[in-house]
């Protein structure tokens, strides 16, 4: 039988849809608000590699700040090289600054070599303004490991989906 869409029913459906949308949009807008305040397109990142050990380990969550015009040698920055999708978290080891521009060389604490090989072809320095999306101001260990598990382990993804489906079924009237 088709559900009757009376004035009450349609509003009930809309109310349910709205509460679902509000959960999504509130999370999203908090994220966007944070990115406007910190001036960083991605103000919270998860560490994906061990290249900054022992400072940061895989799964640590980092909070970024991108309002300082110049970064200092010794700062840990997150940068996006053009043509690569994954942001990299490494320490600044060298800088050349003029009034217009700042160029940086970075290196992972746990790496033997600096980052030249990670940059684009024939790129020798990072551009502070173009490529750095923030310097690390705070971190929380381990919390981000869930996202690593989900993105790298297919079974974890299925397990989470199954769990969500199960709870959804338990909640149904």
């Amino acid at each position: 039988m088709l559900p009757q869409l009376s004035g009450v029913n349609i509003r009930q459906t809309l109310t349910q849809a709205l509460s679902f949308c509000l959960v999504l949009t509130t999370t999203f807008m908090f994220w966007k608000g944070l990115s406007v305040v910190t001036n960083s397109p991605s103000p919270i990142v998860v560490v994906l590699s061990g290249s900054m050990e022992p400072a940061f380990q895989r799964g640590d969550i980092l909070f970024l700040w991108n309002r300082d015009v110049r970064v200092k040698v010794g700062d840990i920055v997150v940068y996006n090289v053009k043509g690569r999708d994954i942001p990299i978290v490494h320490r600044v080891v060298r800088n050349h600054a003029s009034s217009k521009k700042q160029l940086l060389l970075t290196k992972g604490d746990n790496n033997a070599m600096d980052d030249l090989d990670l940059y684009a072809h024939r790129q020798y320095y990072l551009d502070r303004e173009q490529e750095v999306i923030g310097s690390v101001k705070a971190y929380v260990p381990w919390v981000g490991y869930v996202t690593i598990l989900l993105s790298e382990n297919v079974w974890a993804k299925y397990a989470l989906l199954a769990l969500m489906g199960f709870f959804q079924m338990m909640q149904r009237e």
Binding site: R11, M29, K32
Partner: peptide
């Protein structure tokens, strides 16, 4: 209530 709620959802969607 629905109008206020959906207006904010539309704003979020437009911003996104």
């Amino acid at each position: 209530r629905l109008m206020l709620g959906f207006a904010s959802v539309i704003v979020a969607a437009a911003a996104a």
